[in-house]
Design a protein around this nucleic acid. Structure first.
Lengths: 201, 201
DNA sequence: AGTTGTTTCAAACGTTTGTTTTAAAAATAG
DNA sequence: CTATTTTTAAAACAAACGTTTGAAACAACT
């Protein structure tokens, strides 16, 4: 078995890195949690940063796949493209519960992996949203006065913020039941209604 | 002068802690950046965590003030209360540009300061929003089917996410000009239009 | 001027960090 | 069976960590 300890290390490191950050988690703590030897990290990944990089690449796999699907959407009407994006967000976070922790951690305090991983995917997503919004305005679906850059951030924010705070939310908020799909549906509905062109425009 | 190095340390530590986190910033790096001695941190704050705690308390000052103002709003109609909250968000982030970094850092990977500081303020804000939304629904202003817990997160998300990613946004997004007030105004308008009761409801 | 309390400083303390090095053991493949 | 790769264990490494120490410098006040 070639990849037994390799994958075991990645699986164990994922929640530890996501919760505590690259710097806080020590190699010894990591190895013990994975049931592996201290030297295994250097042996397989060339060091702690190498393991972190491997974790991040695995986390971004579904985003790469989602971006491929996004390419095929250019013929769809803007509203449907945004709707697809919303369900894509829910699906990706369901597949990779820790992904957004890494994205946000890299956005706020970038490590060496920022250039290699984050800068590769995030701008493409924003570009897709930005362009879909622009076409929606041009088609008369959305409010003509929209600031597109801000509206892009608003959509990303209203959809993703929930997944950022969710791990702590049960301690802080009086929420009965957490359903990612229900959240995304309502949030997207609010957003879409909010940017729609009104009759008096 | 008693508080010269004290405040100098707090001021210097604020962006360092905000950008890199409590664990990553070393006391020596901190002291050198502040032009102080290594021992000054232990002397004035009892240690690195004490300094972090002092930084956090200073950051939360405007939130405490905002919560006081919120108390006086109970007589206002729900829409205006939410609108006040939106401009309060903009004002607080203007006063304390690093505040949200700390809030989010504590939400995702809590330090010892979480219980003492975060748990003290955040639930009150969410309670205020939750209640305002509930009254708005009861008054017929907002859609009757709204999930209030989710709608609370949506509002917090659409307003705050911008301030989380803004430091990195210029590298990632094609945004011409950053204006916090303009962003908050448009984002809140989108949200408010999105939760408004429609004619057919 | 002299006393007292506070603040600053360089140096040192004991720990922990990531990584490397040995060697032996285990597993895999040809 | 042999050769290669992987895993384990224990030890060692320099570097960096947070904190403490004791003396020196400073300030405030009688």
């Amino acid at each position: 078995m070639e990849k037994d300890t390799r994958t075991k290390l990645i699986d164990t490191a994922t929640p530890l890195f996501a919760d505590n950050g690259l710097a806080v988690v020590s190699v010894r703590e990591l190895a013990q949690a994975a049931g592996a030897n201290v030297a295994a990290v250097s042996y397989h990944f060339g060091g702690k940063e190498g393991l972190y990089h491997a974790v991040l690449e695995y986390q971004f796999e579904p985003i790469a796949a989602a971006l491929e699907r996004i390419k095929t959407m250019s013929t769809l009407p803007p509203v449907e493209r945004l709707s697809h994006y919303a369900s894509l967000v829910a699906g990706v976070h369901h597949q990779r519960p820790y992904l957004l922790r890494f994205v946000h951690s890299e956005l706020t305090s970038p490590t060496a992996a920022f250039e290699a991983v984050i800068k590769k995917y995030i701008p493409r997503i924003f570009h897709f949203l930005h362009q879909s919004l622009a076409e929606g305005v041009a088609a008369g679906d959305f409010r003509p006065g929209l600031d597109l850059g801000f509206a892009t951030i608003s959509l990303a924010g209203i959809l993703n913020f929930y997944f950022i705070v969710r791990p702590m939310a049960s301690q802080l908020l009086p929420i009965n039941e957490f359903s990612d799909e229900r959240y995304v549906n309502q949030a997207f509905a609010i957003y879409l209604d909010g940017i729609r062109r009104k009759d008096n425009e």
